[in-house]
Design a protein around this nucleic acid. Sequence first.
DNA 1: GCCAACGTTGGC
DNA 2: GCCAACGTTGGC
Length: 150
Amino acid sequence: MNFWLMKSEPNEVSIDDALRLGAAPWFGVRNYQARNFMRDQMRVGDGVLFYHSSCAEPGVAGVAEVASTAYPDATQFDPDSHYFDPKSTLENPRWMLVDVKATRKTRLLSLAEMRENPSLSSMVVLQKGSRLSITPVTPAEWKTIMQLLA
DNA sequence: GCCAACGTTGGC
DNA sequence: GCCAACGTTGGC
């Protein structure tokens, strides 16, 4: 079992939206490293920190889990979608995703609080210049965060 | 809105 | 394959 942090803009899909949706495709990832994490490393049942980004209070807002293995992101084929990719074909899709199921909303563990905690200082998402929307979380980091959110 | 940092594109 | 130019992310 692996652990992940996945960023979502709350004005697109917030933790409340995700809880209402249930298991839903994590569409719109257009970065190869993030795609590869979903395609190659995610397994059903992996733990996910649901992170709110590009908003007034960035931070972990809830907990979720990976709910499917990877399959093509339908939005890449839709000319009307913001995520349309003209270079992608049905036979050879570029972008894959997994379903993610939010399991609970937590208090907001802010980015600032995460930065203040020495035991989280090695988190990939906190590294200088890190912009990846999906990053791995170690079991120790996961445990620390679960305790902070308990 | 600013801007640092990183990723992608495309000419050569 | 190099790398300049451009685009995007995302915190502040």
